[in-house]
Design a protein around this nucleic acid. Structure first.
Lengths: 224, 224, 224, 224
DNA sequence: ATGTAAACGAGACGGTACGTCGTGTCTTGAA
DNA sequence: TTCAAGACACGACGTACCGTCTCGTTTACAT
């Protein structure tokens, strides 16, 4: 979680300027918006932050680590609202997630570091710790709340529960990311409602092709 | 679809060496495997292909365009098998997709160019044309086949049908990509079976928690 | 003297376009004026001449050879006028030489190929044959005319005569070139008159410091 | 005189490595000897000097400026010896000048930058300041010494004196350069003696064709 | 208050890759 | 066989960043 390089442990010496961290991360996000990941340079970030390049390298190992931290802060605001039902909870959290992903600094930065992480285990671990796990925890909380409400059956086997949670997480996060970045369409309220219905009921909600009268016509999921 | 820079004129002048294209794209994939997207250099690709750097720049505008074409060829083999049922068809095509994504040249290259495409509309269009649409067509074919089999109800409104197809595509592709790249886990047969069940039946298949006897106990979907 | 590559001796085949030579040399001089030697490119010359690069390389071995030929044509107009006295003849020919050197295509090209010739014996020989010897012949003619007029004593020893002619040639040509290119001043009529007087009478015309009354005050030579 | 690009600021930042300048200029002369001006590349010079290409570009604007500085150092050793008479002084200094010009790094480099300077006023000024003026000063000193000795008559008009000095300088420097580079012959002691005699006494030393007995027979000047 | 030690700004440094340009060769089809 | 056109292998260009380094200066804490 703590991805910055720690300061020297010796007592003496001038302490680090704490404001610099904030300024650097903000400058990084600003540069992501202006330039995107591939054109972002650490020299430029340092200049934007009003800091020497040395200071930056004293605290982060490189561009990837810096961008992970800068993007991770965007996900701090992610919360699981209690909207009364599982469907409403899912819609709420997915909308929040979509709103963050819609920001250009997230778009530019997140996928780039994920792409980098395919060849760098330490980087992937860092992303997992500071970004992904934070999201996955919401799935856990949501499931617990649904269990309490009786909306989902309890799963006695913990291994199966973990598998299911991982699956749901990949489906939810993957769908929103794909919609936003690949299809380049907004994950708006309509889409989220459709998605939630698909997630809860699937393509063939009644086990066959009997489109029931209880499904509103504007809902496409389940009637492909 | 045609992303290479076209040759200057129909007549006059030495024609382009057609074999060079093949060699360059193969060299690009090789370099993606060895170095990953961010460390891949066009000079190195040219050397691997036994070609001058200028030849490369004569045909592709830059690294992104080259990588898109190189990765796109990986998806040429993607086909929709006829396995007799909608569930089996989905499992088949998702497994194929997962197998391609598991290859390091796809992992490294695909997400990187998608990340780049967030700031480059032409690049996104190129990705859509040469990679994404090819995948989406499988969804269309699969739906048509399921309709023929009577596994899905017909959708009279074409706009709704399009929305649904887009949604399913984002869910399927997004889930596999997220599983493979972010969670960094293999999308193996077990996972694909779980995913397909979730896609078809949702989390609450019968509107409640009545897991049927026909579901094997190792299947977590629908019983969170 | 003939520095172009000869056409193939075989009878058959399309004959060379004779006008191309003229056009290429003119284009070379034009490019020398516009760009100078170091920025002149053979592709650009070919374009200016309305000729393919191949045609150019079929006739000249390279940039140096081409520029030598192009510059050599400038010296075709150099003639020894008969102005009635040795001094007047010298002034006449030096003024002509200076006028040619004042042209930008000569300035740019001549010294550059001379510089190149310090490392290329074939090039130096070509310069000697097509440019330098043509100039030196004027010295020979001028001396012959002066001998006829009785302005100079005959030199019985041919080796000594050659040495002297070489010396005079280096002094005359060197002085004009240095004035024009290094000092970057015009070799105008006043300068040529001063130079001729120095050449004929030296710094100490009467073997001492007795500046004669016959020298006009505006003449500096001999009264340093 | 100072042709290097100055360092950024007085205070702050790592200071420039002074030894690099020396190494770069020496490497430049070495490359001039090995390759000549036109084949000399800044990358090669940097490698020879054990320095990064960027370091080189940080200090010199380009090839021409670098070569001027490298060649200028060759002329540092040029001194006016006191050999007792004007003729002997001239011979001495001309021999020194010829010795420098005979070196391949001077041959290759000097004329090339002079050729370049015909299209670049700043370069010509730089050459003048760091090479030419240093030579011309010797003419001034030589004249002053000759005046003291009474070998030359004083010139009351300063403008005429300047004109004369410029003329003599162009004659001396031009003759040696032409002899060395164009005629490609050594300016050895014999030639220098002949040249000096011509400079002092001219072609017609006694106003006619009466070769005096005091001239040794091996001297051709004055008896053309 | 003074010494010590680290952080800091500035920027030079050795590298690597960039994307472009010029060279001289070649390969085509037309004349 | 020449010519126009232009692709090609090669290699240098001058620039931009990288991540490291070396300065002189500043800032806190321990003496």
């Amino acid at each position: 979680m703590q991805s910055r390089i720690p300061a020297s442990r010796a007592t003496g010496g001038r302490p680090r300027n704490a404001a610099a961290d904030t300024a650097i991360l903000a400058a990084t996000r600003e540069a992501l918006v202006d330039l995107g990941w591939s054109k972002l340079t650490l020299g430029d970030v340092a200049t934007r932050a009003g800091v020497a390049k040395t200071t930056l390298y004293r605290r982060w190992a490189g561009k990837n680590e810096l961008v992970v931290d800068a993007v991770a802060e965007l996900f701090d605001e992610l919360r699981l609202p209690d909207r009364g039902s599982l469907a409403a909870d899912i819609e709420g959290v997915v909308l929040q997630f979509a709103a963050i992903l819609a920001r250009p600094e997230a778009k530019s930065g997140l996928m780039a570091v994920v792409a980098e992480s395919t060849r760098d285990d330490a980087l992937r671990e860092r992303i997992r710790a500071s970004i992904v796990d934070r999201q996955k925890r919401l799935v856990l909380e949501g499931r617990a709340r649904a269990l309490t409400r009786g909306e989902l059956p309890p799963e006695p086997d913990p291994a199966t529960a973990t598998r299911t949670i991982d699956l749901i997480f990949d489906v939810v996060a993957g769908a929103v990311v794909h919609r936003t970045l690949v299809s380049a369409e907004q994950a708006d309220e309509d889409w989220v409602r459709d998605f939630t219905r698909l997630l809860l009921h699937g393509l063939t909600p009644l086990g066959g092709a009997r489109g029931g009268a209880n499904r509103p016509p504007q809902n496409p999921a389940g009637s492909v």
